[in-house]
Amino acid sequence: MKLTIVTHNVIKGDGQGRVNYEIAQEAIRRGHHVTLLASQVALELQQSEQVNWVPISVKQWPTELLRNIVFAFISTNWLQKHRSQLDVIKINGAITHASGDVNAVHFVHSSWLKFTSQKTQSKSTKTTQSRRFLYNFYQWLYTALNAHWEKQAFRRARVVVAVSSKVAEDLQAIGVPPQKIRVIVNGVDLQEFSPGNNSRSTWNLPTGVPLALFAGDIRISRKNLDTVLKALVQVPDLHLAVAGITEGSPYLKLAETLGLHGRVHFLGLRHDVPELMKAVDFLVFPSRYEPFGLVVIEAMASGLPVITAATTGAADLVTPESGIVIADSDDVEALAKAMMLLTSDRHHRQTMGQIARAIAQQHSWEQMARKYVDLLEELQP
């Protein structure tokens, strides 16, 4: 089979990039030839005789929207010229305007656009509105355009793969026929993320106290750190480690305003999250909209119980024995109650963490990749 994958990155250190990296490796193991239309590709794939990398450089463009437009234009032209030489094309969302046999959906912009439009906007001062107007308009434009382009891309695909049942529901809501949808959940590296005990002193974190972890982009409201901080006020014995870029984040000031300065520890962007997870007691991640949420399954693989929300796709993996799923991501009281439960019972945390690890072991990257390549082989001429 001559397989072509169209994606920005095919590398391990990126969610969507890791998915495509594993698919490429599995295809190579089965003897297939893989063409990668991408901006960045892992060195080991570049060196494989079975891989043809078609580099698409877009880093010189100033915004993600422009980079995506240019990437789509270049990849579309290439695919139109070479389509007769290819057996199966796998694309991701609206990354190209050419038709793909399989479209893997990691985010449904229509759903996020609908969600944000339904939420009552918080009041802000005229100065703040003025300062953030262009940024907010750009975010809206980016989401709206992608929502439009995605619908077209999904119609052109023979099969649309959803990374969770939540994404499958979102796809049906925008008109994708159920019979066209397959669900293949993302995987986890069971060696990189595994149970263990690390000294908190590495991160200057307090010892002898219950410690939760929040990891994600804390510059945006979607990840929902604000609700976590408000709930933390009601759980006085709990400390919180926050991994995420602090520059431009409003939550450092919010934590101070809420009187949490001594209990919230902002660690900045971390590249050692697998090790950090060995130093905390549980993960709290009630994202307002998350098609999957790799951090959830990574925490489970690390033997941590998880608190998340039904709006997170990976919540499907969280059973009552391995974590807590709150119905409403913005329910401060429900989140505080869940955090209090895990804070107060160490034995319960440990038992839940063991079950969480067992669940994660059923979802390795290799298992995920086999399901994808099985599907791609079904579609080859």
Rank of each mutant, 00 (worst) to 15 (best):
S110L: 01
A369K: 07
A147L: 08
Q85P: 00
L79V: 04
E150S: 11
Q380G: 00
A309K: 12
L45W: 02
R219I: 01
A38S: 15
Y251A: 03
E44G: 04
W149L: 14
S48Y: 01
A42W: 00
E26R: 13
K126C: 06
V161T: 11
L36K: 00
S117A: 15
L190A: 00
I69H: 05
L232G: 03
V51P: 04
K371C: 06
Q350N: 10
A336N: 04
P195E: 13
L3A: 12
Q152L: 12
H348T: 12
V233K: 11
Q354G: 09
E256G: 08
N68I: 01
W53C: 06
S48T: 08
N20S: 02
P381V: 09
L335N: 07
E44Q: 11
I5Q: 10
L240R: 04
P381Y: 05
E150R: 02
L205W: 10
L258R: 04
L3G: 08
F107I: 02
V160Q: 01
V185H: 10
P206V: 00
V280D: 06
R67W: 05
S302N: 07
L341S: 14
R155E: 13
T128P: 00
F107D: 03
K180A: 10
F292G: 05
F292E: 11
L205P: 12
F193T: 09
N204Y: 13
S249P: 01
A241M: 06
S165N: 15
F292M: 11
K119S: 14
D281I: 07
F107R: 05
S364H: 11
P210Y: 09
V163G: 08
V280K: 09
D14A: 11
L276E: 04
E169C: 03
W365H: 10
I355L: 11
T4R: 03
T4P: 07
L45Y: 07
L37F: 11
E26Q: 15
I69K: 12
Q179T: 08
S110K: 13
P210D: 09
Y21C: 10
A98L: 04
P250W: 08
T257H: 13
F73N: 07
L211P: 02
V296F: 07
L375A: 04
A309D: 05
H33S: 15
S122K: 14
G259F: 13
D281A: 03
E366H: 14
A212Y: 04
R158I: 12
I95H: 00
E378S: 12
D14Q: 07
D331R: 01
V306F: 02
H239Y: 09
A315I: 10
L3R: 09
R370H: 12
P286G: 10
H82N: 15
F133N: 13
E333N: 05
V188D: 01
